[in-house]
């Protein structure tokens, strides 16, 4: 099957991460996952923590953990502004595990000196990394 390709650029506040041709991406929209194929209508959306699946024209699939950000689609290109993004192999499982435990510990009691939304978000990000790292290990 011949599928049209388009360009995906991924940027973080620190640096451009990569730019390449893809045929499809599945991104973690804040309201649920969304798939983008070539010639998608112009779109701007917020992303939550989740899994980014990228398929290139050769059919290779790559999976990334995204902690949040934005996706803009238009002119047959997609630009992803990610807070942080890691390929599965780059995920620091130990660190994510520690972050998860720390957040969980903090969320236990009811205390006034804790910023709960922030803790909750930290936990969501850590769990997302762990989930994605785990999922891949099961597949391979």
């Amino acid at each position: 099957m011949e599928t049209a390709a388009y360009t995906l650029s991924v940027l973080t506040p620190e640096r451009p991460v990569f730019e390449k041709d893809v045929v499809s991406i599945v991104a973690p929209g804040s309201e649920g996952y969304l798939g983008i194929l070539a010639h998608h209508a112009p779109l701007i959306t917020a992303l939550g923590p989740g899994k980014l699946t990228v398929t290139d024209p050769e059919g290779n699939v790559e999976i990334y953990a995204v902690s949040g950000g934005f996706l803009e689609v238009g002119n047959n290109e997609a630009i992803l502004l990610a807070d942080t993004i890691e390929a599965v192999s780059e995920i620091d499982v130990e660190r994510a595990r520690r972050a998860e435990a720390r957040a969980r510990e903090r969320l236990k009691g009811l205390r006034t000196d804790i910023d709960y939304p922030r803790c909750y978000n930290a936990m969501a990000r850590a769990q997302n990394r762990l989930r994605i790292a785990e999922a891949l290990r099961v597949h391979v």
Binding site: S30, P42, L43, I44, T45, G68
Partner: peptide, 27 residues
């Protein structure tokens, strides 16, 4: 605004964008 579709809504994206905009400027 161009012909963009905003998901979920312009205001919601706005709310998510502004704090990050502040981070970007400080960075």
């Amino acid at each position: 605004a161009g012909d963009y579709i905003f998901e979920p809504s312009p205001d919601a994206i706005f709310g998510a964008l502004l704090p990050r905009y502040a981070v970007t400027r400080l960075l």
